[in-house]
Design a protein around this nucleic acid. Structure first.
Length: 286
DNA sequence: CATATGTCCTGAGAGC
DNA sequence: TGCTCTCAGGACATAT
């Protein structure tokens, strides 16, 4: 489930090991699992990365981006279970891609790995033109950490979709996923079921503040490792933010905010939403 | 155009 | 104990 905080943690974790280094080769490790989406073909990748260095490692929405000296960039989308690792992996059987770097006296590690148990992740080597499309405003909205209150009002005013579902639409706002959407709405004291365009100015103001509050705190804790234990940072260590979750996966528990309601789970757009009906009350529709 | 639903994938856990 | 079934949710494709 890597969302913005987890992907940001990956970027920060691999950056000191990888940034500025020359790629020796990119390898697809032997893996008995079904092949992951890697584009273009490994042979073409090998040709295009020859002699290139990784100039910059950054994040666009929920993707890890490795920008190369050639102008090309790897865009890595971990999706559900993908990880970027520089040390050990949870297991060796789901390693999907290895970037091997020229040895350097300042660095202990010479490989970067993409590990993905379920294999829903994708890795693409993009030309500058493709980057403009894939990272562009037609595909991805403003990063959730860069949104202004005015922008929030704009992107929410045009849809009747429930606010929780609207927050997951990456064209509207980029980086929020299922887990943090519930946490953000809880801190904002907004019902996940309210149509986005019916939010009051005050509610949008609270939302605009809650988004960076939640996401930055989650980054500080290096993300959330849920019950399945999949998510890990670049060193294969678990995150810590799951202990700070107020509502996510806390169905049946007393609401930690109002201490009156009980956390409930509902399904919206085939995804779980957790919230407290007492402090996230839905206004009576007009 | 906006909105809703289906699809991919693996392994954990439930239930019998 | 071992089988079958359901579920988790990233992004995108397709349908309405």
């Amino acid at each position: 489930m890597p969302e913005l905080p987890e992907v940001e943690t990956m970027v920060r974790g691999i950056r000191p090991h990888i940034e500025g280094r020359r790629i020796r080769e990119v390898r697809v490790p032997p893996c008995r699992c079904r092949p992951l989406l890697i584009e273009p073909r490994p042979k073409t990748i090998a040709r295009r990365v020859a002699g290139a260095t990784v100039d910059r490692i950054w994040r666009r929405a929920k993707r890890v981006v490795l920008s190369l000296s050639t102008g090309d960039a790897f865009a890595v989308e971990p999706r559900m279970t993908g990880l970027m690792l520089v040390d050990e992996a949870p297991d060796d059987s789901h390693l999907r891609l290895e970037w091997v770097f020229e040895p350097s006296p300042q660095h202990e590690v010479n490989s970067l790995w993409f590990w993905d148990r379920r294999g829903l992740g994708t890795i693409r080597l993009l030309t500058p033109e493709e980057q403009a499309v894939v990272f562009g405003p037609d595909r991805l909205g403003t990063d959730a950490l860069e949104m202004t209150e005015t922008e929030w009002r704009e992107v929410l005013s045009s849809t009747r979709t429930a606010i929780k579902v609207a927050l997951l639409n990456q064209k509207r706002v980029a980086g929020i996923g299922n887990l943090y959407a519930s946490e953000i709405l809880h801190l904002s004291r907004i019902s996940p079921e309210v149509p986005a365009q019916e939010l009051s100015r005050k509610q949008i103001s609270r939302l605009a503040n809650a988004v960076p509050a939640i996401l930055n705190e989650a980054i500080r804790y290096e993300g959330s490792t849920l019950g399945d234990g999949t998510y890990r940072n670049a060193l294969n260590e678990t995150g810590g933010y799951q202990n700070a979750h107020m509502v996510y996966a806390r169905e049946g528990e007393l609401c930690p905010t109002c201490r009156r309601g009980t956390i409930v789970r509902i399904v919206q757009a085939q995804r779980s939403t957790f919230f407290c009906r007492v402090c996230q009350r839905k206004p009576r529709s007009k």
